[in-house]
């Protein structure tokens, strides 16, 4: 259980940022995982009054407030129309509807959990994060950083790529044993592996969308996997190319279906 003494409903990002500079502060987003992690803090900072729960679409991208729930993304028509329903697909296995209504995109992305389905998908879509101080940073770079005291305010998902997600799970709503997100854009295909079980990372970029089994096999051989109690390294390495192939194939299918909606 997370323990803290004060609760501040921030009235501005300035206030939230200032409070968050203390090591004894923590930002509360969905409070799904946070409450389980046994943190002891002085002050909890709530961003829920800052209007960060909206999905906005512009010419080139979707801009998603950090406090937007996974459920809102899952059911957002514009987002799913543009990306061939991949958000609905990728988020559906996460625990249950009530959980996804609580869990936020900002919480998921900031936490950089290895098991995150969301991070894998966003990486494949070349997403950026908007940080209060530092401004826009690519998610690929952010994924590799340590937790810091800046505030993630938005996630930006540029249009133009098609993505598909494949995963293996021990049971239908469990965290994944392995997740693979693939996307195809003008510069070719990109493959992301998550739940390796370490943080999701891009394992191939700019490859041909028609990559065959041997290419996927080679990518899997080069990637790093580990063992945890859900699966062994050997198992992950063995199924990774299968998921890659399937995700790539699914991308090309959604590409055909979804060409229109996003223009």
């Amino acid at each position: 259980m997370a323990v803290y003494k004060n609760y501040v409903l921030a009235q501005s990002l300035d206030e939230a940022y200032a409070l968050n500079q203390k090591k004894s502060s923590v930002i509360v987003a969905g409070n799904m995982w946070l409450r389980m992690c046994g943190l002891r803090k002085q002050t909890a900072i709530d961003l829920s009054a800052l209007g960060l729960d909206r999905i906005e679409e512009n010419e080139d991208a979707f801009v998603i407030g950090a406090m937007t729930s996974l459920r809102d993304m899952e059911t957002h028509e514009g987002l799913n129309a543009c990306f061939g329903g991949v958000f609905a697909d990728a988020l559906k296995p996460i625990v249950g509807t009530q959980f996804r209504r609580g869990a936020t995109i900002g919480g998921s992305v900031y936490s950089r959990f290895g098991f995150s389905d969301v991070s894998a998908l966003l990486l494949a879509l070349d997403a950026k994060v908007v940080l209060y101080q530092r401004g826009e940073v690519s998610l690929a770079a952010y994924q590799k950083e340590a937790w810091d005291r800046d505030i993630l305010t938005h996630v930006v998902i540029p249009k133009g790529r098609r993505a598909a997600v494949q995963s293996v799970r021990l049971s239908a709503t469990d965290i994944p044993v392995l997740v693979c997100a693939a996307s195809v854009g003008p510069d070719g295909a990109r493959i992301v592996l998550g739940a390796r079980p370490a943080r999701a990372m891009v394992v191939a970029d700019g490859i041909s969308p028609e990559a065959d089994a041997s290419v996927c096999e080679a990518i899997a051989q080069a990637a790093s996997f580990g063992t945890n109690r859900r699966a062994s390294e050997a198992y992950r390495r063995r199924v990774a190319p299968v998921l890659m192939m399937r995700a790539l194939m699914a991308c090309s299918e959604t590409q055909k279906d979804g060409e229109e909606e996003c223009k």
């Binding site: 409903l9 409450r35 389980m36 709530d46 509807t97 009530q98 959980f99 609580g102």
Partner: peptide, 27 residues
């Protein structure tokens, strides 16, 4: 449970079903 898995604590907040175990009370 203590891990947001069971759904037993579901209530409606502003008309939507949420897990009351995970909603910070002050919120």
């Amino acid at each position: 449970c203590e891990t947001t898995n069971c759904g037993l604590c579901t209530v409606h907040m502003d008309g939507k079903a949420v897990l009351s175990c995970s909603v910070p009370a002050p919120r």
